[in-house]
Simulated scan of single mutants.
Amino acid sequence: MSSRGPYRRHSAQFKPQLCHDIRSGALGRRDAQRKYTLSANLIQMWLTQFDRGELSTEEVEADVVVDYEAKIAALERKVGQLAMELELVKKTPRLRLVSDSENSSIITGPKPAPSDGGVK
């Protein structure tokens, strides 16, 4: 059984940029393998997709837009939830447990009421 590294996801911007650098000659395949610790098969797969036009910048931008839209939707849901909670808190009357003249503590509690005599 071989030891595999952690599963990594590469950004949609990284893949076409790397393929462009390899195709333009700015970076060799082996240099890319060493620099980014990628397998030769993965680089070959990306280059094939790049050559077919599957890793175009328009698709990358579309993926980014989809990601942003999902984040925006999640944030809008959270804002709605917090707004509802805030309205609920505003509508709930606050109970006054201790008057200003009384001092209370969790340990000691409120002051005892004065008695008018002994025990009967």
Rank of each mutant, 00 (worst) to 15 (best):
D100V: 14
K15M: 05
S39N: 13
K71A: 12
R77E: 13
G28F: 09
L86V: 06
L75A: 11
G118H: 12
T37S: 15
P112K: 11
E85H: 10
Q44P: 00
I72F: 04
E54N: 12
V65H: 13
R94Y: 00
S105T: 15
L38M: 15
E85F: 10
E69M: 10
E58Y: 07
R94C: 00
Q33W: 02
E58L: 10
S99C: 12
L27H: 07
S105P: 09
N41E: 15
L88C: 02
M45C: 05
V79Y: 09
P114E: 05
F50N: 07
M84H: 05
D116W: 00
L82D: 12
L18M: 13
R29H: 04
E59S: 01
S101R: 15
S56I: 06
G109C: 01
Q49R: 15
I43P: 06
T37H: 15
G109V: 02
Y68C: 09
L97H: 11
A32W: 09
R4W: 04
F14A: 09
Q13V: 09
L47T: 06
D51Y: 01
V119E: 02
L18A: 05
E102F: 11
Q81V: 06
V60F: 02
T37P: 02
I43W: 05
P114C: 04
L38Y: 12
V65C: 10
L38W: 13
M84E: 10
P6A: 07
T48E: 15
Q81S: 11
A62Q: 14
S115I: 07
V64C: 05
I106G: 14
S115K: 13
Q33F: 02
Y68G: 04
R23D: 08
G109A: 02
V65Q: 10
P110W: 01
P110V: 03
D63M: 06
V60M: 11
L42D: 01
M84S: 08
P16G: 08
R23Q: 09
L18V: 07
I22H: 00
E85P: 03
A26Y: 05
D21Y: 10
T92L: 04
S115E: 05
V64L: 12
E87T: 03
L88Y: 00
H10N: 02
S3L: 14
K111C: 05
K90M: 01
V98A: 13
H10F: 11
I72G: 02
S3K: 10
V119R: 07
A73R: 13
K111N: 09
P93E: 06
V89M: 03
E58T: 11
G53L: 04
R4G: 05
A32I: 12
S11M: 01
Y7E: 15
A74K: 15
S101A: 15
P110Y: 01
S24L: 03
S11V: 00
K71G: 04
D116V: 00
A113H: 06
M45W: 04
V119G: 00
S104P: 03
P93S: 04
V64N: 07
Q17S: 07
E85V: 06
G25R: 08
S11G: 08
Q49Y: 09
I72W: 04
V79A: 13
L88Q: 08
E87A: 11
Q33P: 03
F50L: 07
Q13Y: 12
W46S: 03
R52A: 15
A62C: 06
P112W: 02
E85K: 14
L97P: 02
Y36S: 12
G118M: 08
E61D: 11
R96E: 03
A32Y: 11
F50I: 07
S3D: 09
